[in-house]
């Protein structure tokens, strides 16, 4: 079970620029570290983050091993029409987690 926290305003005026934040719980194990017995700790990272607003891709990012655990992403979106913001994280094994929030544009 991944824990996800989203901060999306409930309402916005047309053409207003709103700040959106998304936090997911993930170890983001780089694959460069070693355990207490010298064994390599295998890499386990999220490789892709996407945000779709009313179906259209508005923000995306490729993650690499340098990203810290429990990554927090903050970005801005121009409010054009009411709709869902859907956030998706996909890890290196293809497993993905999603959460969405509704933005009402007045």
């Amino acid at each position: 079970m991944a824990s996800i926290r989203l901060a999306v305003p409930e309402t916005a005026r047309v053409d207003e620029i709103v700040e959106v934040k998304a936090l997911i719980r993930h170890p983001m194990e780089s694959g460069h570290r070693r355990g207490s017995r010298g064994e390599v700790i295998p890499r386990d990272i999220i490789t892709r983050f996407e945000c779709r607003y009313a179906g259209a891709l508005v923000f995306a990012g490729d993650f690499h091993p340098g990203i810290a655990a429990n990554p927090l992403i903050t970005f801005h979106v121009r409010a054009t029409r009411s709709g869902d913001l859907e956030f998706t994280w996909t890890d290196q094994h293809g497993e993905s987690w999603s959460e969405s929030a509704t933005l009402t544009v007045t």
């Binding site: 824990s3 926290r5 901060a7 934040k21 936090l23 719980r25 429990n70 903050t74």
Partner: peptide
């Protein structure tokens, strides 16, 4: 209170 990663555990 949003960005503080400790709140992932508080929520859980």
């Amino acid at each position: 209170d949003f960005a503080n990663p400790g709140f992932l555990w508080v929520d859980r």
